[in-house]
Amino acid sequence: MFDTRKLEKNLKRRKLVGKVSLLVCVASTLFGIVLLGVLLIDIVRDGYAYLDSQFLTSFPSRFPARAGIKSALWGSTWLIGCTALFSIPVGVGASIYLEEFAARNWFTRFIQLNIANLAAVPSIVYGMLGLVIFVRWLNLERSVISGALTMSLLILPTIIIASQEALKAIPDSIRFAALALGSSRWQMVRDHILPSAFPGMMTGVILAMSRAIGETAPLIMIGALTYVAFVPERLSDPFTALPIQIFNWASRPQHEFHNIAAAGIIVLLLLLLTMNAVAILSRNHFEREQH
C-alpha cells in the first residue's frame, strides 16, 4: 500500500512543479509575442507616414520626399515568382523520387545526408556559388534569372526535406492498399499519395518562399544592384529586391531615409503576408476538395 501522508505531500509538490512549468511556458510565448508586437509598432510608427501611393509607384531617389519602392517591389515579385517556378517542381520531384521510388541503398543515403547538410549551409555561400556558376560561367550577368536560380538552390534542400516529411506522414497502409489492387507505383503516388501529402508539402513550400523573399546576402553577393530606376521586363534584366533596398535606405545618414526604410519593411511584410495567405487559403481549399 501507498503511504497516504507521503503521497499527499508528494502530490502537492507535483502540482506546484506543474504550475511553475506552465507559467514558464506561457511567459516564453508572451515574450516572443510582445517582442514582435513592439517591433511591429515601432516600424509602423516610423514608416506609416511615408506609406502612400507615391511611395509604391516611384523609383528610388536622392530626395526622401520623392523616394519610392517600385523597382524593389517589382524586383522581389519577379525574383520570388521565378524562384517558385524553378524550385517547386524540382524540389517536389526530388522528394517524390527519394521517398516513393528510389531504393534504400548507400547512394540514396549519401544523397539524403548531403541534402540535410546543404540545408544548413549559410546563405552567403550560395551567393558565392551563384556568382561563380550563373553570373560568370553561364554568363547570365547580374540578372533576375541569376538571382532566382541562386535562391532556388538556397531553398531546394528545405523544400525537399519538408516534402519528404509530408510523404513520410502518409501511412504505408494506403500504399499497400493501392499496390495490392494492381496499380503501378506512379498511379499510387498520383492518385493517393500526392493528394494526401499536398497540404504538408504546401506548408514546406510556404516556409521556403518566405525565407527566399527575406534573403539579402546571396543577392548582394551575385550583385543585385542597390540603385535601380526601372522595372525588370525580362529574365536577363538587372534588378534590385526589397531587402536590398531597405538595407540601402537604412544605412544612409539622413533620418528621413530611416523612416522610408520602415515603410519599405511594411511593404515587405505585407507582401509576405499576402503570399502566405494565398498559399494557406488555397491549401485549405484543396484539403476540402480532395475527398
Partner: peptide, 21 residues
C-alpha cells in the same frame, strides 16, 4: 507483378480505405 496483383487481391488486417468517397 501488377497483373499478378490484379488477379490475386488482398484484404489487410486493419481496414485501410482510401481517404476518399
Amino acid at each position: 507483378v501488377v497483373s499478378l496483383r490484379r488477379a490475386i487481391g488482398m484484404v489487410f488486417q486493419k481496414p485501410n480505405p482510401f481517404p476518399k468517397t
